[in-house]
């Protein structure tokens, strides 16, 4: 029993992992974990492994190794490995797919992040038309904010951005960060970027991690406890569904 389980455990694990992958691909949720450029390759290899795994179960190759009954510590280590990998396999099937949360965002330097630092150039945006400005994301705006904090630059520009709430440490009652993760390879390298939003007592209406669409403009920071020069002062704040592609690339 033990040696049979050990022989087939890997096939069971790989079948679970590739089934989960194929399902994520079919429901278009693979982008929660990897950059879109790897999606096709990942699904193709997963499908191959799925076929090989089921076939190897069917053929059930003869056992060429002499079964060595594990003893003592190696049995304990083997048991722990079995349990841990089994737990991960269960989580792959049972836990609903989700994005990284604000807990990771605040742990990865949301303000100092230089992601997409060149995504927009202040000189070119100076006289941009409304349509272009309406398309700006959290990352575009924070790249502009890093280049200039001159209030007049932002006076005639209305931001319309989507992101999730990460709490601010300096002035948690009045300011939160509207944040997005940027992914270059997979969720492992996700870098958070956040716009400071000035909304007194925001916690009464919204929860951390909630997705919001905010329209508003950048103004001089009224908060005395935060040293950011400019903040986004909202005109409207609407709770929205998490976008189907929650990460920016």
């Amino acid at each position: 029993m033990w040696s049979n389980l050990q022989r087939w455990w890997g096939v069971i694990l790989i079948l679970v992992a590739v089934s989960a992958t194929v399902w994520l691909g079919a429901t278009q949720q693979l982008v929660l974990y990897i950059h879109p450029r790897y999606v096709v390759f990942t699904v193709v290899m997963a499908a191959l492994a799925l076929v090989m795994g089921v076939l190897s179960l069917a053929i059930r190759p003869a056992n060429t190794e002499e079964a060595v009954a594990p003893r003592g510590w190696s049995r304990v280590v083997g048991g722990v490995a079995l349990l841990l990998s089994g737990a991960v396999a269960l989580s792959l099937v049972l836990v609903p797919p989700t994005t990284l949360s604000s807990a990771t965002a605040s742990q990865r330097d949301i303000v100092g992040s230089t992601v997409g630092s060149d995504s927009q150039n202040a000189d070119e945006v100076e006289n941009a038309d409304d349509e272009l400005i309406a398309s700006f994301t959290v990352v575009d705006w924070s790249s502009l904010l890093r280049q200039t904090s001159d209030p007049s630059f932002y006076s005639n520009k209305t931001a319309d951005v989507v992101g999730f709430i990460t709490a601010s440490e300096d002035d948690p009652a009045n300011i939160f960060y509207l944040s997005r993760f940027t992914v270059t390879c997979c969720a492992v390298d996700a870098q958070p970027t956040g716009l400071a939003v000035y909304a007194p007592d925001w916690a009464n209406d919204f929860e951390v991690d909630a997705w919001l669409e905010i329209t508003g403009s950048f103004e001089v920071n009224p908060s005395s406890r935060s040293d950011l020069p400019l903040v986004l002062v909202p005109e409207t704040m609407t709770v929205v569904e998490r976008p189907s592609e929650p990460y920016l690339y």
């Binding site: 992992a17 429901t27 990942t42 989700t98 949360s101 604000s102 969720a187």
Partner: peptide, 29 residues
């Protein structure tokens, strides 16, 4: 289970699973 929505796993644990899943899915192919 995919349709159930969030199951009340706290933020950091959920992120741990998301990161582990990400490493698995990225390396599996």
């Amino acid at each position: 289970t995919g349709e159930l929505g969030a199951v009340g796993v706290p933020g950091l644990t959920a992120d741990l699973l998301t990161l582990a899943t990400s490493v698995i899915i990225e390396s599996l192919p």
